[in-house]
């Protein structure tokens, strides 16, 4: 304890110095890595919108930070002017006809600014020069003409987005095809003879319609014939017809039918009484049958016992046919 108090000043001094050295060390490391002390070259560019843009945002080339955004503002033409710096160590990457791309990620997973150097070996443009962005035709044309070192490929989202223009072109061609088809159909419907197969189909359809007209006429004539057949019905049902004859025979025909039905009724009554008596006998029949079944079972047992009796084994002879006493007739003999 005495040692601590005696050297308290030195201990506190060391305590403060070590902390300051650590802060200094971190600042130096951060400064070196983040190019705080390096000379920076200022340039400016232009974007259609500041969406995804922020001050201090890093500018990268192939994943390496080569610069950063210093400021941006809205100009009179309602586009965004942005000032950026390129670090001294990467200034040779910025060549004439370089472009800046503001990559925005539609999934909200970041994005960033990319530098695509010009595809040439010329010295860097003068400080303060304008570097076009890919959001304007000037930058787009440089990329399309392969004037920049824009690498192909990348992440899946970028690749998908890259296919969007091609897809849109295909959709455009499809729309044009559909448009021409609609025009052809329109011409066919208007009776254009040069409308191709559709016109032929429509011609055939017209022939079919003529045939359908003929068919309808035939059906009409048939219907009129049927109307004439309606006259047969009064002849059949009228007082002079068949039905009239049946009704005007002083119920003779009706009497016969009634007699027949009476006989049928008597037969049915007899059948009913027969079935009734059979049903009254059925309990007795059941009893007799059950007794017969018991008797047969017992007879089977007796036969079993007789069969197994050793004294009776082989005791019963087989039946033999006995010839008749009168002799054979001549008629029975064969010739």
């Amino acid at each position: 304890m005495t040692f601590k108090f005696r050297y308290a000043d030195r201990i506190v001094g060391i305590f403060i110095l070590v902390a300051l050295l650590f802060v200094l060390f971190m600042l130096v490391i951060a400064g070196v890595n983040r190019q705080w002390f390096a000379h920076k070259y200022h340039y400016h560019t232009r974007f259609t919108s500041a969406d995804g843009l922020s001050v201090g945002m890093s500018i990268e080339f192939r994943g390496v930070e080569v610069g950063s955004i210093k400021s941006f503002s809205l100009n009179e033409n309602n586009t965004v002017d942005a000032d950026f710096v390129i670090y001294e160590s990467y200034l040779n990457k910025l060549r004439p006809r370089s472009v800046i791309e503001l990559a925005s990620n539609p999934l909200g997973l970041g994005g960033g600014l990319n530098l695509y150097p010009g595809n040439n070996e010329e010295p860097p443009p003068a400080e303060g020069s304008f570097i076009p962005s890919t959001q304007f035709p000037e930058g787009k044309k440089l990329v399309e003409d392969k004037m920049t070192l824009k690498e192909e490929g990348g992440d899946m989202v970028s690749e998908l987005l890259a296919t969007v223009p091609e897809l849109l072109t295909h959709i455009d061609q499809t729309v044009v095809s559909v448009n021409s088809l609609v025009m052809t159909l329109d011409g066919s419907l208007q009776g254009d003879p040069e409308a191709g197969p559709v016109g032929e189909i429509l011609g055939d359809a017209q022939g079919l319609l003529g045939e359908a007209d003929t068919l309808v006429g035939t059906i009409n004539s048939l219907v009129s014939d049927l109307e004439q057949a309606e006259n047969l019905l009064p002849e059949l049902v009228g007082t002079e017809g068949v039905a009239g004859g049946f009704l005007s025979d002083n119920s003779d025909f009706y009497g016969r039918i009634t007699g027949m039905t009476d006989e049928v009724l008597v037969s049915l009554n007899n059948l009913a009484s027969l079935t009734g008596s059979l049903s009254s006998f059925s309990p007795q029949l059941d009893l007799i049958l059950s007794k017969l079944s018991v008797t047969l079972d017992r007879a089977e047992d007796v036969m079993e016992g007789l069969k197994n009796n050793p004294l009776l084994k082989g005791g019963i002879e087989e039946y033999k046919t006995v010839p008749s006493a009168g002799g054979s007739s001549l008629r029975d003999e064969e010739f």
């Binding site: 601590k4 308290a8 000043d9 201990i11 506190v12 305590f15 403060i16």
Partner: peptide
């Protein structure tokens, strides 16, 4: 002051 830094800082390290 020195003693306060000593007690508060060094001894809590």
């Amino acid at each position: 002051l020195i003693m306060q830094i000593f007690f508060t800082g060094v001894e809590a390290l």
